[in-house]
């Protein structure tokens, strides 16, 4: 069984936000006015680094990190969040009661609350598409081929090679959640 992981090359990312929009369209994510911004399963984050006058701001899409030690899975009272055999943190909408605890537990803020369904929601690497041999929407539609998904356990997969050669790193590894989404060329 593959252990899915993702690598995002920020050098190839042109900030077009296609991943965000395509995810929102295909997953039927409603317009959301909570705290003033809209939601998708992908978050667009623009961290600032440095101090004036040498300030730098960059741009990164943040998916669910599909952590091996996922805080959202630990806090879920119903078992709606669980880690599948393929390493994907799945989400069972039948079991979710909408307590929103997982949203407060995820240090990457990868989850959001869908007010229309009364359920939490998150990225699942488009698991049904992967099963059908297709790529997730964000990977397929990315105009710069910046997002690559594949098997982390296979050293010859494209994702493993990029992580090795480009020195890709996960976000906030100090949290100990063992994320499976990596970033390279951050600057």
């Amino acid at each position: 069984m593959a252990r899915y992981g993702m690598v995002i090359d920020l050098k190839k990312c042109v900030r077009c936000r296609t991943c965000y929009i395509t995810c929102k369209i295909f997953h039927n994510i409603p317009n959301e006015f909570d705290s003033g911004h809209s939601y998708s399963r992908i978050k667009l984050v623009e961290p600032e680094v440095g101090k004036y006058p040498s300030v730098h701001r960059f741009f990164m899409p943040v998916h669910c990190m599909h952590c091996d030690e996922a805080p959202c899975v630990n806090v879920c009272p119903t078992g709606a969040s669980y880690i599948g055999e393929n390493g994907i943190v799945h989400f069972d909408t039948e079991k979710c009661i909408g307590c929103k605890y997982c949203i407060l537990a995820c240090p990457y803020q990868a989850r959001y609350y869908n007010h229309e369904t009364g359920l939490a929601d998150k990225c699942d690497f488009c698991a049904d598409r992967l099963e059908a041999g297709l790529q997730p929407y964000c990977v397929e539609k990315c105009i710069g081929n910046a997002i690559v998904i594949g098997d982390l356990d296979d050293p010859n997969s494209e994702v493993s090679k990029i992580i090795r050669t480009e020195g890709a790193v996960p976000l906030s590894p100090h949290l100990g959640t063992k994320p499976k989404v990596f970033y390279c060329n951050i600057k």
């Binding site: 078992g79 979710c96 009661i97 609350y113 359920l119």
Partner: peptide
């Protein structure tokens, strides 16, 4: 709760 009538699931874990 977002799904009030599914509350019995809250006792599961």
């Amino acid at each position: 709760l977002g799904q009030r009538f599914k509350f019995p699931y809250a006792f599961l874990r």
